[in-house]
Write a protein that binds this DNA or RNA. Structure first.
Lengths: 134, 134
DNA sequence: TGCTAGTTGATAAACGCTTATCAATAAAGA
DNA sequence: TCTTTATTGATAAGCGTTTATCAACTAGCA
């Protein structure tokens, strides 16, 4: 039987509150706010379990370790800040992307990633600059 | 001074003839058609050199090792066949992709990858089925 | 409260890819 | 052809991420 441990709660909660896909490392740091003695192995174990239960989906980013976000969201894409390395969720999709494939190719899905600087990391006209954790 | 070895020739030629971005492993196999005793280390060394000379650019794919293609091409995207694992080049870009980012975000570039089955790997209506190497 | 088995944390180990090492080889000019 | 030295191939080592191990811990229930 599955137990409700404070570690799992902390991980689930951290992911909810982040509002963006988190890597295992980010998840470790975030969840330690509630359970300071949390170990990395537990984070990986919990992620694995949540993915298998379809509560979490991996978000693959080019050249980066996978992030994880809640399953069941509407189709959308992501933005990776090259400065703070955080991945953000974007709304919607321009559509018609699959039509890029030539005839004979069967497209099942697509993934779009924007790269740049997030609002917090932009150099000059940065209003409301927050602390940038990574 | 830089020497013109048959290994480098074989690697450059293999990449030209492939017509699609190749991973170091794929490059090794392809270039061995000309220089059978070619080693993996040489492939990595040559790739590194060609990238530094701006003759080659890495193509990052979500959840996959990097591929490499000739530099200087027009902006375009790629298709990854989940069956044979080959990466194909697509023509053009739908445009307006960067507008997905919310205000305050500075977009520098984007990457789009379609996933599916290439013409060679499609199950049923496959005309002219070729051998599928991987 | 006490028991029991699922869960945890620290660490080692596995894993896949990339780089370093080094003696042997071979390109390029004399 | 000879000499020099960049290059090579095989292998070990490095690196970052993910998984396995195992004794200690604790959630859940009687």
């Amino acid at each position: 039987m599955q137990r409700n441990t404070q570690q799992r709660d902390a991980i689930r909660t951290a992911l909810e509150q982040a509002g963006r896909p988190l890597s295992p490392q980010e998840l470790l740091v975030a969840a330690r706010a509630r359970v300071p003695e949390l170990g990395l192995a537990t984070v990986y174990r919990t992620i694995k379990a949540l993915v298998q239960e379809n509560h979490l989906v991996p978000v693959d980013v080019p050249g980066e370790p996978a992030r994880y976000e809640a399953a069941g969201k509407a189709h959308h894409h992501h933005f990776l800040c090259r400065s703070c390395d955080r991945l953000f969720e974007l709304k919607g999709c321009p559509g018609n992307l699959n039509q890029l494939a030539p005839g004979g190719y069967e497209v099942e899905r697509h993934e779009l990633t924007l790269f740049g600087r997030c609002a917090d990391c932009r150099p000059s006209p940065a209003r409301r600059r927050k602390s940038v954790r990574r």
